[in-house]
């Protein structure tokens, strides 16, 4: 994509900003719109953007398949794990009250980790799906 020199330069400028924005959406979810899901999607969109500009192989080098695939599972485990933690600390499933020193901080902690889990899974899945779709023809040719 040599011809899209402009795109490459702008892309380089934009990508860090987008990542920052994803993090902002993730952690600002308590106060404004946003949260794990949106942050996950944006995070995936960043990599997709990178892949669009620099090509899929480059993106795959940046975020390898194995990492993506384990993200898919880890996020869910994190979420479900928060639930189990509620059980372990003597509450009901997904009970955040027991996670912190007092109920509100427990809630805070619970929500934080839960959102993190959502974000991880969502970005993992979206990215994986993109890889799968975008890389398919290539994989077919390789055979």
């Amino acid at each position: 994509m040599r011809r899209f020199l402009v795109l490459r330069v702008v892309g380089k400028l934009l990508i860090p900003f987008m990542l920052l924005f994803a993090l902002y959406v993730q952690f600002h979810g308590d106060f404004g719109p946003g949260g794990g899901f949106q942050a996950g999607v944006i995070g995936a969109a960043v990599i997709v953007f990178y892949a669009l500009i620099f090509g899929l192989p480059a993106a795959r080098r940046l975020v390898p398949d194995a990492v993506v695939e384990s993200m898919v599972g880890l996020g869910v485990l994190l979420y479900a794990g928060v639930g189990v933690a509620g059980l372990v600390f003597g509450g009901n499933y997904l009970d955040y009250f027991v996670l912190g020193a007092d109920p509100v901080s427990g809630q805070h902690r619970g929500i934080f980790w839960v959102e993190a889990g959502v974000a991880i899974t969502v970005s993992g899945v979206m990215l994986k799906i993109f890889y799968m779709f975008a890389g398919r023809r290539r994989a077919l040719e390789d055979q």
Binding site: L77, G83, Y93
Partner: peptide
């Protein structure tokens, strides 16, 4: 402890098993 939580564990145990199988 476990007995009281059975209603949710019935569902959650296979639910958790799924990502574990994916990761392994």
């Amino acid at each position: 402890m476990t007995l009281a939580h059975l209603p949710v564990l019935v569902v959650v145990v296979p639910l958790i098993a799924a990502p574990v199988t994916l990761l392994l």
